[in-house]
Write a protein that binds this DNA or RNA. Sequence first.
DNA 1: GATGAATGAGTCTTCATTCAT
DNA 2: CATGAATGAAGACTCATTCAT
Lengths: 207, 207, 207, 207
Amino acid sequence: MSPRRRDAERTAAARERRRAEILETAAEVFARQGYAATSIRQVADAAGMLAGSLYYHFDSKESMADEILSGFLDDLWTSYDAILAEGGDARATLERLVEASFASIHRHRPAVVLYQNESRHLALNPRFAYLDESQTRFRSMWMDLLTRGADEGAFRADLDASLVYRFIRDTVWVAANWYDPHGRLPASDIAKQYLAMVLEGIQAPGE
Amino acid sequence: MSPRRRDAERTAAARERRRAEILETAAEVFARQGYAATSIRQVADAAGMLAGSLYYHFDSKESMADEILSGFLDDLWTSYDAILAEGGDARATLERLVEASFASIHRHRPAVVLYQNESRHLALNPRFAYLDESQTRFRSMWMDLLTRGADEGAFRADLDASLVYRFIRDTVWVAANWYDPHGRLPASDIAKQYLAMVLEGIQAPGE
Amino acid sequence: MSPRRRDAERTAAARERRRAEILETAAEVFARQGYAATSIRQVADAAGMLAGSLYYHFDSKESMADEILSGFLDDLWTSYDAILAEGGDARATLERLVEASFASIHRHRPAVVLYQNESRHLALNPRFAYLDESQTRFRSMWMDLLTRGADEGAFRADLDASLVYRFIRDTVWVAANWYDPHGRLPASDIAKQYLAMVLEGIQAPGE
Amino acid sequence: MSPRRRDAERTAAARERRRAEILETAAEVFARQGYAATSIRQVADAAGMLAGSLYYHFDSKESMADEILSGFLDDLWTSYDAILAEGGDARATLERLVEASFASIHRHRPAVVLYQNESRHLALNPRFAYLDESQTRFRSMWMDLLTRGADEGAFRADLDASLVYRFIRDTVWVAANWYDPHGRLPASDIAKQYLAMVLEGIQAPGE
DNA sequence: GATGAATGAGTCTTCATTCAT
DNA sequence: CATGAATGAAGACTCATTCAT
């Protein structure tokens, strides 16, 4: 490998690292203050540079949001797809999906918050059409799983499936708002407790 | 009562009605587009007037949000306080609180959405200190109820109480994002199914 | 006519007058400094208002240019069409077209300068497609006239028609750069001398 | 001559060549898009380098325009001065000046376009004072020639001299906007036809 | 000679707000 | 009560320019 080749690789990697840093900072600020309520200058301040300098790395505020969200969703679907590919009964699949979801909150907390709070507005923009597509795929994945589980006799059949779907969806993702990656409970424990609640309920047994 | 006095009352009432109308419109637009992403002009358009005219009724965008949110919270706490005053065991109280919450989503859907999405940012402003206060009261109300329920043997004791609290809180309020006042399921049915899930779990019995 | 109706008309007319004033100012500044080199603030200064206030009257800098140019072209084609409708031989038609062109420079000097200097760049924008359309119509109008004149024996046949076309076109419009509406020579005199040069040449007769 | 000296000369020459290349590219881009509307980055792109790299060769955007324009004007005046030094009657001089002008359009097309479109704005800057000086010299050269020609009986005396001056000036230079160095008509042919029009007019003889 | 990252001033535009009518 | 015109601050974004490497 020529020295020049090595140089190019080193700088390309360095640039990628810088972009990732800025993106993480941006995600945090967007998550904390809301996308619309955050000025590009606040992002730049948090990243230790001037507002104009951000545009060396990113085209626009929008493309920052785009990279943040698509990075999160790509990662999420990679882990979902692996789980679905494994097969297994509905109950086991549900557990793994929930665990994967909390793990993804652990890795992408600010992105998840952004997704939760802004995806509805952003999806109006054709550039963010993939948000709706993801949402659709997500919904059918869960609806299929829930009806299959009811057929298999694993889940109660007396509940409205789409209500259960929303119930699970909401409770999982909304946790990003309070989840602390350095907190007392690791994501895997939260997932466990969460599954206990969802599956067995909070009522004392035999009640 | 003098005629002039009656006139004054009539116009005061009319003004109050107009304010309420505008406020409802504003709440809807804020809920749909987000508070920061909504311009006062969009609110005015939706209310059938010009931007400047809104300032006859309200002295700022902020005070609209203020009235929307405090109106909702006042109403919510009125119904919560009535339930708490009644007494009753933890399980029954929990049911009534959840029912009251969904009823309040029915009555104040846009306000609830606004509350969910913006209260964190708004609460930074001293004017909205009451949001944090409400949040604090809300938290202790639920924590008390949940620990009492565990003591009474009504609720499982093996779950992290503050996790259960967040779990219930989030799922209830996030429902405002998809609840449709004119939809298939009335708020009371949703509350029932929701309680079934939370109390008994979605797992088939005897599994 | 009701008083309210009269009011509406008065204010609509007043607004139209204000717009026209601003537009004229803008056209002058654009013509003097170039469209791209002129900031919206300079236009606002010249119009005696703040930059933001311009946006009450106009959507964008671009739409100011649009109105300036289309106003000029509409007026120009109205007078051209009238001349073409009259008929007459090629020589007479040419004279009337040239006179109409100088008259239009008199009425729309800054717009003509803007047209000359910026239409090529602006026409890249679909919004300004009409500039190219006008250019095309203009070219065929003149080419038809010149070949008809050569056929009628009124114009020399030994010259390249498209060269003559460009020659006439350019010289007429470029005059907007130095024409002074309050100057020594009125537009009609310039047109006369211009026609003398173009038709008979500057060479002394019998030379 | 020492080898080191030869090296220095070779690199100095290479540098000069690179500068000239870049300058030509810049002139083309400026001519096509307008000076103000062209960013230094577009110039750099066209020259196959990054924006920052241009500053190794030139110290500002302005100095590029400066070199482009002064290069053109120096060349132009060199050929004009040669013609004027030759002497000869007004008619012959006029023909040679016009031919020289079209030849200069052939050699410096983009620079001429730049000159035509931007010299008025640029001349406000003291650095470009020479533009006005050239303009002044140009005007007196032509006015002298035209009045001498009228005195000599070569040119008609019934036309306004300063109008004729502008007429000739404009038609010659504006041709840079459509002249194509590789087109059907070479510059010398255009000059010939142009002279035929200007001197004899487009009217059929004996009309 | 050239690159890549950053600067800081400036651009167009939006928007909450004011106020005379 | 409402309108229409304007304000002024702020926002996203561009760009000529600099400079360490």
